[in-house]
Nucleic acid binder design. Structure first.
Lengths: 189, 189
DNA sequence: TATTGTTATACTCTATAACTATA
DNA sequence: TATAGTTATAGAGTATAACAATA
């Protein structure tokens, strides 16, 4: 397999980066890679089966999941994009006949976005398959007990990350000492 | 806090999606969100401090980490992008004076990409700060024992994800039964 | 013929800022 | 004045396919 099962950092990592810890960096790198690999499965399936981009899928999933039409601004907040970006996403989806812009009953500035029956067909086919995939892949790797432990760790990491977001910029305490040698590729653990 | 600490799926999830499991979906969703939050810290720092996009940072880190100039194709493989995309990334970095295209000594089809002293200054300032951030955020959330357990889980998940990549498309076994209620108000059957 | 890298083209995603219509 | 959404513009990132140079 071209892809190794885990990213490792060199044995000299902690002397190269004083103030860092190899274990934390390995957690970080592998958390990202694992997430990318898993989400990549969903994205590929979504594109192959329905020619939907990840963001387009998210829009449909959010509206369908809400069970009722939503204002563009609300969808934009869920996806964490600007209203300008949302207009563009909705334009594409509307062109494909997957969403409709409806007038808001009480405020003529606003819209309500609903998904069309065609979109509903797509979502009703796609989401169960994606969730089944999640069950298969994650259940293949981890026991329920491990999944619950993972979830606890992720909750703690999210809290720490959210706190760090509003914290000051990271301190570049440790200064790198040597160029990282090219030959240090074999982690001997 | 606007952002809840953990994504949860509804209690009726497993009846909506037969063949799925709420626990696996929560693992999947939170793995993604955690990774995004953590990587978002790095991306924001990198952009704020050095106006470098994530991909541009990766190119510099890969070349600097190798300790010697690398061929574009090698960098492209590490970043998992095509050589066409790599040309574009290198164009941007070269315009900013951060990389140089050197002739390959033995093969005139090839190039060797080296980073300039300016880029080295950036990388030597940035990477230690990012690694220190990793230590702080992850160390704040998890004990070393927990970090090691997390790493074990991630290794297993990566293996499962890599296997799934070459497996057939997911089976949409379970058919969605009802529209997902937004606020437990009755979706009629 | 096969490989490396470039070019040309196109598309998605995203942002910002100016703008319109409405509140 | 403030808000919702659009438009115009811009730029990054990515891909594919055709291509040139070289092996």
């Amino acid at each position: 397999m071209a892809i190794p099962p885990l990213i490792r950092v060199g044995t000299d990592f902690e002397s190269e980066y004083p103030g860092a810890e190899a274990l934390a960096t390995e957690c970080f790198a592998n958390l990202w890679r694992t997430a990318e690999l898993l989400m990549g499965l969903h994205n590929r399936d979504t594109m192959d089966r329905h020619q939907l981009s990840p963001s387009a899928r998210e829009v449909l999933a959010v509206v369908e999941g809400a069970g009722e039409p939503l204002e563009p601004k609300v969808i934009a907040e869920r996806l964490m994009v600007t209203t300008g970006s949302m207009t563009s996403l909705l334009d594409n989806l509307e062109k494909r006949g997957l969403v409709r812009r409806l007038p808001h009953p009480h405020d003529r500035r606003r819209l309500l976005i609903d998904i069309t029956p065609e979109a509903r067909l797509i979502v009703d086919e796609l989401l169960p398959a994606l969730h089944a995939r999640e069950r298969d892949v994650i259940g293949d790797a981890l026991t329920f007990t491990e999944q619950r432990a993972l979830l606890r760790y992720l909750a703690k990491l999210q809290q720490a990350a959210i706190q760090a977001r509003s914290a000051p910029a990271p301190q570049g305490d440790g200064r790198r000492r040597t160029a990282r040698p090219a030959t240090a590729k074999g982690p001997q653990s």
